[in-house]
Design a protein around this nucleic acid. Structure first.
Length: 258
DNA sequence: TCTCCTCCGCGCTTTACTTCA
DNA sequence: GATGAAGTAAAGCGCGGAGGA
């Protein structure tokens, strides 16, 4: 990601939009410059995985004796949903081949007792590598990765969710820093322009330079040093020159801001 | 076309664990 | 070495959108 800071001017339109949907998640920064420069857009796209076939088991196992299911005394929608998750995990475990006694013990530790799972360095590295290729996994990729890492697919899924969240947060922080710098530069530029405007106003209020000179000196043009015939329309005074002053044109001059 | 259901991703939050003063 | 605050990351929860029946 790179920004072209050289093309923006004082009239800068900055838009930060965060769009999310189930099919994609987009973090977009549009930096539109008044000089009709192309905008820069930063996109982080997540691709929706395709349909995942899975089994849904009813809540009949010992899972109800442990962990989060305790929280739901009633047969609410939430409990139904958790049941679905548990059922999904069960089916995924079968599909991913994680059926050993050790695996089950691990599950009891990290899910029901909510003991924190810490991924090993090799597991993290492999997940990072996979994330480089796909920020989102389809069911098949998830199953394969889970089998490779000896994790439950749900854990792989959660890792990718958290990883996407971290990426998005980092991107947002970067966008914020960029906008902050732009704002600071625009503030400085605004201050400079205000000062320039005050100077020009003061200059306009003061009497023209040629009126402060003795009449004899008016015969010579201060600009071209040509002796004039004292006709005011011919004389090029410094004031007349200043009548067409150089103004900072934000549309033609590069801004200090961006 | 509408409704229901399921799946999935996301935002927000909780919590276990680590690091550091 | 003990301890508490702060930080980090795995996981929980609820919501909404998409899509199929």
């Amino acid at each position: 990601m790179e920004y072209d800071h050289s093309v923006c001017s004082t009239r800068l339109v900055l838009g930060l939009s965060l769009n999310s949907s189930s099919s994609s998640s987009t973090v977009k920064l549009n930096t539109t410059c008044s000089t009709n420069q192309p905008s820069t857009a930063l996109d982080h796209k997540c691709v929706i995985p395709s349909f995942e076939p899975s089994l849904t088991l009813a809540l009949l196992s010992n899972h109800s004796d442990h962990g989060f299911l305790h929280r739901d005394k009633s047969f609410s929608n939430m409990s139904l949903k958790r049941e679905r998750d548990v059922g999904s995990d069960e089916s995924e475990r079968v599909l991913s081949g994680v059926t050993s006694v050790d695996d089950v013990e691990d599950d009891d530790d990290c899910v029901n007792g909510r003991k924190k799972l810490r991924l090993t360095k090799s597991q993290s590295a492999l997940l990072e590598e996979a994330f480089k290729h796909h920020s989102s996994l389809n069911p098949k990729q998830k199953q394969e990765l889970a089998r490779e890492l000896k994790l439950r697919p749900r854990q792989v899924e959660v890792w990718f969710q958290n990883r996407r969240a971290r990426t998005k947060l980092k991107q947002t922080e970067m966008n914020f820093e960029h906008l902050k710098k732009c704002c600071e530069k625009l503030t400085d530029e605004n201050q400079r322009l205000q000062t320039e405007l005050q100077e020009l106003k003061a200059l306009k209020r003061s009497p023209p330079f040629y009126m402060q000179l003795p009449a004899a000196t008016l015969t010579m043009c201060p600009s071209c040093e040509r002796i004039g015939d004292a006709k005011p329309s011919v004389v090029k005074s410094t004031y007349n020159m200043a009548a067409k002053p150089h103004f900072f044109n934000p549309f033609t001059n590069p801004s200090a801001a961006c």
